[in-house]
């Protein structure tokens, strides 16, 4: 509930669309309370009794961010090029069969960085435009890295690309996702050859299949390894140490803060 200048609560009838701004904190609070529960309790142990008294604490999940134009904030010099980059990408994609709105799902501006969430089927086209368009010229791809969000149903596996333009001295992030059940993302090695090993690493650690990669094999783990170790459902493991009948569990199963 928000208080206005007179200290009186707004009448029930006035809580309409015109007073939405005034109720923002209350609305945000309701949204938060309705969000999915991420975890409960403060301690990581799931198997042992938690005697700390924090067991009923609920941590709720953050909703996905999406930013509206303008992406450039006058107070933040780090964002100065973002609107120009987004415009240039929109123009560049306008020339291709893929329209901007189809290819780019949402844009997030956060902490002075811009992230374009691109639908996977349009990733190669977007990457090609980013590299070749004179107003974009992202010559340098800094590789791809996977992130596993098991709770993000339908888009569990994210592939995050960082692009750097030396011509314009700008930096953007391109993010794409695929479901666990169909872990395929098109390879952009044909556009950025440097992504060869980076994509192999993301396959090795997360099990993302990069379609069109020249030789998608494991790179860090042995060739006959089972599983993809940096996924969240892959345990950290560790060696049980036995000493006088006691077994030390691996670090991720010990009782600790999270």
């Amino acid at each position: 509930m928000s208080l206005n200048g007179n200290g009186s609560a707004p009448a029930p009838g006035e809580e309409g669309e015109e007073r939405v701004d005034e109720n923002l904190p209350a609305r945000a609070g309701r949204e938060r309370l309705n969000a999915d529960i991420d975890r409960s309790g403060m301690f990581g142990a799931k198997t042992t009794g938690d005697t700390s008294g924090y067991g009923r604490l609920l941590v709720r999940r953050q909703p996905p961010l999406a930013s509206e134009r303008p992406y450039t904030h006058p107070d933040d010099p780090r964002t100065s090029s973002f609107d120009a980059v987004a415009d240039a990408l929109e123009r560049a994609l306008g020339k291709s069969p893929v329209a901007y709105g189809q290819a780019v799902e949402r844009v997030v501006v956060d902490r002075g960085e811009i992230t374009f969430h691109v639908r996977r089927e349009h990733l190669v086209e977007v990457a090609r435009r980013l590299r070749d368009d004179p107003d974009l010229r992202f010559e340098l791809c800094l590789g791809v890295t996977g992130v596993h969000y098991p709770h993000d149903t339908g888009r569990e596996l994210h592939a995050v690309y960082l692009m750097r333009s030396i011509t314009h001295n700008t930096e953007i992030r391109v993010e794409t996702s695929c479901p666990d059940a169909d872990p395929h993302i098109p390879s952009i090695v044909a556009v950025y050859p440097t992504n060869d090993w980076h994509e192999r690493e993301a396959w090795d650690f997360f099990g993302i299949v990069f379609d069109g990669h020249p030789a998608l094999t494991r790179i860090e783990m042995p060739d006959d390894w089972h599983g993809h170790p940096q996924r969240k459902d892959y345990p950290l493991g560790g060696i049980p140490v036995e000493y006088r009948g006691a077994t030390i569990p691996p670090p991720d199963e010990r009782r600790s803060y999270q």
């Binding site: 953050q62 961010l65 956060d110 902490r111 960085e113 992230t115 800094l142 992130v147 995050v160 960082l162 930096e171 992030r173 803060y257």
Partner: peptide
């Protein structure tokens, strides 16, 4: 022991 909390999000620094 617990450490500090970092607000959700992602960042890249080079």
């Amino acid at each position: 022991t617990e450490g500090f909390r970092v607000p959700a999000g992602q960042a890249y620094a080079a």
